[in-house]
Amino acid sequence: MRKRTAFFILIWIHIYLFAQQGQNSILLVERSVDRPLTVHKNQLQINAGYDFSMLSRRIDESGNIVNLSEAGIASAMHTFPLNIKYGILEFLEISAGTSYKKSGMRSEDYWTFSGSSKLHIQEINEHKGLEDMFMKMGLRLPFNLKSFDWSVSGSVTLPVAKYKPDKPDHEVILVEPVYDSYKFTYHYNNRFGTGVPTFKIRSAAKFRTERTAIIASADYFKPFSSGENIHWKSRRIYEEFEYTGLPYKYLPSQVISCSGAFTYQAIAWFSQYIIIDYYKIYGGWSELTGKRVANEKRNYMFISFGFEIQVSPYLRLSQLVELPGWGNNTDAPICFATNLSFNILTSK
């Protein structure tokens, strides 16, 4: 029964895709520089990818680079983004998406004491899970595409992803009985959910020539309200650890970002681009210690280089590398991203 169902689904997909071979399907092979800022009417676009971020440097408060590799605490993050766009009208699109992320960060080891015991402490902060799902609506002007178009969009994220950290676990190894020396490994299990609804507006403009295009965009992200999370406090009673979840309130930071992208259409199916992004993160607070403490202000600029290949009328492949620029109070990872974009017209 399953094989038969799968067979009919494949046949249906095949017929469906080839049914797009008409005048409208030209939209699906249009060059990167020619594309409007929103997808076309009835166009369904599914984007899926994989990003690998390698964090070996951090930028401190003064803007100086801190080499995490030298301290032995470099880490990596794996991201699997997925989003779907659909053109309701030629100038109106809706989209939704989320991503799955996983990272493990080890802090710098240190020695301390507990009574007469000597303790070697190692902390591992693991983050794993889905990000909150966003739903977006975008509008574009003018309706007849020329050398310039402009779009504005608004999106909300719903706090559907898990955001409260799981209970931590500790591993205790007796290293040297004579000196009463132990190795403690703290393992914190964090999530990527925000825990509160958030909202983002975006405006973008695109100028295009025969072989080039420039896209300038600005985003503003803000949480709707404060939320409540838990902080796990642990204590060791002889050989056992006890964990207590202490609630605290928080308000995520606001983010203003702007971006400039230059695209060069080398040939009809191949384009290259350079993107410069700037993020300013400010506002927000947490009451982890009972005192309302503002989140640290951060800003960060990075530059990306990439290309896009039109693999088939339905499939685009893009890859880019993000390199850290300047900023303060921020991680400065190097990111390699690959994205597959599948496009069809759902009706003529």
């Binding site: 507006i201 803000k222 927000g284 607070w285 309302r292 403490v293 503002a294």
Partner: peptide, 12 residues
């Protein structure tokens, strides 16, 4: 939406 958002007042 922007007007309805909670502001971050009185944080240290």
């Amino acid at each position: 939406f922007i007007s309805a958002c909670e502001e971050s007042y009185n944080a240290v």
